[in-house]
Design a protein around this nucleic acid. Sequence first.
DNA 1: GTGAAAGCGCTAACAC
DNA 2: GTGTTAGCGCTTTCAC
Lengths: 361, 361
Amino acid sequence: MKTQKITIVEVAKGAGVSTATASRVLGQYGYVGEKTKERVLAVAAKLGYQPNKIARGLITGQTRTIGVIAGDISSPFYAAVLRGISDVVEGHGLGMLITNSDETLDREVAATKLLRENQVDGLIVSPCDVTDSPHLREAVKAGMPMALIDRKVKGLHVDTVAVENIKSSRDAVRRLLLAGHRRVGIVAELAADESRLRGFLASAKDQPPNGLQLLSTSWQRLAGYLEAHRAFGLEVDPNLILAAVGHSALAAQNAASAALNEKARPTALFCADGLMSVGAMSAISAKGLKIPRDLSLVCFDDLDWMTFVGPGIDAHAQPQRKLGRAAARFLLARIGQAEGAPRDMRLSPRMVERGSMRSIL
Amino acid sequence: MKTQKITIVEVAKGAGVSTATASRVLGQYGYVGEKTKERVLAVAAKLGYQPNKIARGLITGQTRTIGVIAGDISSPFYAAVLRGISDVVEGHGLGMLITNSDETLDREVAATKLLRENQVDGLIVSPCDVTDSPHLREAVKAGMPMALIDRKVKGLHVDTVAVENIKSSRDAVRRLLLAGHRRVGIVAELAADESRLRGFLASAKDQPPNGLQLLSTSWQRLAGYLEAHRAFGLEVDPNLILAAVGHSALAAQNAASAALNEKARPTALFCADGLMSVGAMSAISAKGLKIPRDLSLVCFDDLDWMTFVGPGIDAHAQPQRKLGRAAARFLLARIGQAEGAPRDMRLSPRMVERGSMRSIL
DNA sequence: GTGAAAGCGCTAACAC
DNA sequence: GTGTTAGCGCTTTCAC
């Protein structure tokens, strides 16, 4: 019952021209007489011709579609990044094939395969393995334009857009220390394993650990937190590192409320991202504490915003969008003409201090 | 510098078989000898053969890709829905081409065109125009399998997955009225225009207005709110309808704080969705009020959860995912074999009462 | 300016 | 079981 598909052949027949001519006007590459052009266009419209990009792609080798491998589309971070990507991608009339990796190597590899088989013109990946990732290297070697988001892969020379995690969180925490706080908690997803955390603390005691650029976001922000303390000559109480088990507000809430119930509770909290701050807010509010009377709270929410936070999460959507836009622009530039050295763009959050939640925007 | 593409022809040549045989092995449709099969596979692996789905699509007429038109990927609602869709779509090895309509007809039309040109096997749309939408009708008429999410289009007989907005919000508000509340505010995005709101209130005074199923979500939930009041014989104070200008937490916050600052402030708030509740929470918290001590707050958050709410917003992400999953399953079933009458699935939220925010999950 | 013809990489009939 | 052939719908030489 599928309606008869109208192809260029039918249009050409209807207009009494060759398929080549019809194709020339429908595909918009020059040298067609005005009258024929109009005639073809008219017939196409009458017949309801719809181009088949698949067929076009087969011959041009371009699908005008890019592939995106996100960690989890439903997370606010990726959702915003994706929106940024789609802003520029749709703006250029391209399509966007999206997959989730769930931060899992297996699924990322599968996604890469799927997208390559679909002949996408380029790939935007937020890689879950920042050291090895042979599937990405291979794709790049095979000539696939690629842009990385949020994380850099060791030795993979492609455009990368990321956030200045270490420097920025260091600045934020320093601000709290300058304000006189001496018990600053950090709420972050660091759950991987306890011993890793201990090792990290030990190695960061006297100097920044090596290879920070390759750590995941939360760990980088922890590194900044530690650096700020070190610069102040302060020892970090491990009890102040409130590790959330999983990247969810609930996990953050659990981590934060445990700390808030202790006698020596933190006087300030540094939240590693927006989701963590939502959880921390819950804990604070459940405890009956108030911000900023009882507690200072700084939230790292990527890019533009570093706030004394309220729950107005949507106010923070915009910034990450920039990340996506930047990555997409880079990629499209590469697709256009693959030249120039890979760019490495690092965006630094702006710190915004706010008295009340009303003024979040 | 693009690496030489390996086609089936090369593989066949290498294995000393015909392209047909190679294709049979690589494409996995039976009747190949064990030995030849192995030989072909070995050569394919050695050469690094990667199938070209574009070419396959051209001939099979199937791209194994579906198109999705969402309002705005970055909104928590669509982000979760999309994730649900991708769960099942990726599970079946299909791809997903995503676009944003920004709830704009123009962009929705453009997206439909783009996706059709890309020969997607099916379309999941959350339509922004529920009465006319000729582009969708046309696509369906042309044989495009389609599933609608969240809203039904008048007279368009395709699978639809939506939420029981009216009934559920009525139940939620009734609950508050039963608890003795007489000033229940509703926080919802109703900003379109003031006079529409007045008209709606007037028409809902004595009986449910007509055509409710075609209203947008917020308006349906308002209708439920009004119905609950009507059932109690209560007049609705228009000042209790806290219309947010735009679908953002900030807008909700503004609407809510205005009301909370009045002498006769509401004793309970019904929030039309999760984003509204985030904004309301901000307002409440800024005002120094406590939930549930000073105020009751019910949040309509689609599907499973209808909660006395705390700020643990992420706890609510899961439910909408179901919406997406359901729609995708419907669509895939249609793509498999287009038969049977369109299904109209309406999911009803479960109401969950909770004492403290700690227990939100 | 326009047409004829040769494919893009793959699959589907139909032989053998 | 395997090979031959003819396309899918479009673009692109290369003539004219």
